[in-house]
Design a protein around this nucleic acid. Structure first.
Lengths: 130, 130
DNA sequence: AGAGTATATTCTTGTCAAGGTATATAAAGG
DNA sequence: CCTTTATATACCTTGACAAGAATATACTCT
């Protein structure tokens, strides 16, 4: 019955990220989350359930309330996945920003379209210069 | 027509994460990715398109090939989102590992199931010290 | 030009999860 | 007990999206 969702699936949901961000400062009850995020209570409960089952949060009972707080492990996992990339960009980010199109030395077959535009542009394959 | 997906949506897909991990070592052509990940070529192209439009990768043309390489910014964004949590767990992870449910020290209201805290939480001393 | 190679783009289909609404459970208090 | 407060769950509908197969585009070489 349980989908084994990866931690990445869990944090893909914006409301869940919002909940996690709320909890980073301190534990909160469902009602407090509901009010601060202005989202319907069932939605909060459902997301909290997902977060709980994935180990992102845990809860303790306080009368009718449930106090939710963060658990670090799953986010640690995300952090661990990021590690190699962190190394990558700390090594390359400056070079990238200076010359993006400098690092090709693979196998220039013939003439090549050496440069690609940088910036907020998309693929040049659409309006090809042909 | 364009869904503007968050970076978290993008990396929620396992194949896309695999592609990114491949590219961290060096740029690769579509065919190389296809072979290493053993996934159908259209799938690779489609995921690459998503990654490209989200700014995770960029490509240069090499004859009929396209060489894809990483761009750091979007993953940086993920990293930035993680920052507050990193502070959180580095502060609490040891305490958590010792006793998770230890942190109550307030007025017990009446009879209770076990333990609980009352009041509008917001415990001081936590949160960001910035 | 045609053949071969490399990559991109349809179109369709099935799945799955988020949102909404209503209702269920549980505890507290009069 | 009945009501109020707090949270959880069930049901349903809808939309997003990944996978698959087939086809299109693009470039190279003979």
């Amino acid at each position: 019955m349980k989908r084994v969702e990866s931690v990445f699936d869990i944090i893909a949901e914006p409301n869940r990220r919002a909940i996690l961000s709320l909890l980073v400062s301190s534990q909160q009850s469902v009602g407090e989350i509901e009010r601060q995020l202005r989202m319907p209570q069932p939605a909060v409960s459902k997301h909290l359930r997902v977060l709980r089952e994935a180990g992102f949060v845990e809860s303790t009972v306080d009368a009718q309330r449930r106090l939710y707080r963060l658990k670090p492990e799953p986010l640690h996992e995300v952090d661990a996945w990021l590690a190699p990339f962190r190394r990558f960009w700390s090594a390359h980010v400056d070079a990238l920003e200076r010359h993006l199109d400098r690092m090709d030395q693979s196998t220039p077959t013939k003439r090549k379209t050496r440069k690609r535009r940088r910036g907020p542009n998309r693929e040049p394959g659409k309006g090809e210069t042909k």
